[in-house]
């Protein structure tokens, strides 16, 4: 198992290196620069700014300098927010986005697994069609539609919940978590239904039923563990996706997370910020994929046996 993890980590290094290099040169080849603004910038001012941010150096020197800083964990100063480093901005946004992602994923798991298992117990009946139909709607409904809809219902008409903010008013974390989690809940429902259907037709389940175990014990003790493997495999990339893809929800609910910086950095040509967020998120994606592979392997006795054999 350790060898497997070690190999996967080793493979990640060239992947991340390619991401850094490609991003570095791509952002600089995009038209427009970080200091272009609607009001013309005086040439002498532009020169001073470029000198302060080392943009006056030849491109390869900038690249080498960036890699040098990066190896010390320094992502550089933000161009758009003078006085702030990219590390600091990521550091302030990550806990918020991670918290939002965690709530959204918890919501998605709770609703998704319940619906999926429920549907799998009576396949091709109304008990199956209704939750799966709702899951289809959940997948199709974009968050920029669901978010404002929830806000209108729960925030304005019913006046139960705050409609924006994060940690400012009690209950303001609920609507964004549900909005972000819904699409994932729908995916999880479909995955757990498929996983459960496969497991429920296995011989050992039939044995368990034949032994006279009540249905709920068959499901929870025997079927769930195997039935949820596809869900677990989905969780790693899903969490990374939540971290990278919460831009819309963060904008609708005015949440001070990473997503807004990630998208705006590109519009602002904030080179260091674009690179910082890309490097950071690509590392996270690689890392979470690894974790979900490890968990899936650990849950699946057949794979576990392979690792023990020294695969």
């Amino acid at each position: 198992m350790l060898r497997f993890i070690f190999w996967r980590l080793l493979q990640a290094i060239p992947v991340i290196f390619v991401v850094i290099t490609a991003t570095f040169f791509l952002v600089r080849s995009a038209p427009g620069g970080p200091f272009d603004s609607e009001k013309a910038v005086l040439p002498e001012v532009k020169r001073a700014l470029e000198a302060q941010y080392k943009l006056d150096l030849p491109l390869h020197e900038q690249y080498i300098a960036y890699l040098g800083d990066l190896s010390n964990g320094d992502l550089g100063p933000s161009f758009k927010y003078p006085g702030r480093s990219v590390n600091e901005i990521l550091g302030s946004g990550l806990p918020v986005t991670a918290e939002l992602g965690l709530y959204a994923l918890s919501f998605a798991l709770l609703i998704g697994v319940l619906a999926g298992v429920f549907a799998a117990l009576r396949p091709n009946t109304r008990q199956d069609y209704i939750p799966m139909g709702m899951a289809m709607i959940g997948i199709c409904m974009p968050s920029f539609l669901l978010g404002p809809l929830l806000v209108l219902i729960f925030g304005i008409y019913l006046d139960w919940l705050p409609i924006a903010g994060w940690g400012d008013l009690p209950g303001d974390k609920i609507l964004p978590s549900i909005t972000l989690g819904s699409a994932y809940a729908a995916y999880i429902a479909r995955l757990s239904r498929a996983g459960m259907l496969e497991i429920l037709s296995q011989d050992y389940i039939r044995t368990a039923r034949a032994k006279g175990l009540p249905e709920w014990r068959v499901v929870i003790q025997h079927a769930l563990r195997g039935g949820l493997i596809p869900v677990i495999a989905f969780l790693g990339p899903a969490f990374a996706g939540l971290l990278a893809g919460s831009f819309v929800v963060e904008t609708i609910f005015q949440i001070p997370g990473l997503g807004r910086f990630y998208v705006q950095a590109a519009f602002n040509r904030d080179y260091t910020m674009i690179l910082g967020t890309t490097v950071f998120l690509s590392t996270l994606i690689v890392f979470f994929n690894l974790i979900s592979d490890v968990i899936a392997a650990w849950l699946n006795p057949r794979l576990r046996a392979q690792f023990k054999g020294g695969a």
């Binding site: 918890s106 919501f107 209950g171 769930l224």
Partner: peptide
């Protein structure tokens, strides 16, 4: 399975939070 078990209380907590809210507005 432990992961799953720890997620249920988190979600229940969130559902409970739903009960509050609505209090005094910023204004």
């Amino acid at each position: 399975m432990r992961l799953f078990q720890s997620i249920i209380p988190a979600s229940v907590l969130m559902a409970l939070l739903t009960a509050c809210g609505g209090g005094e507005s910023n204004v």
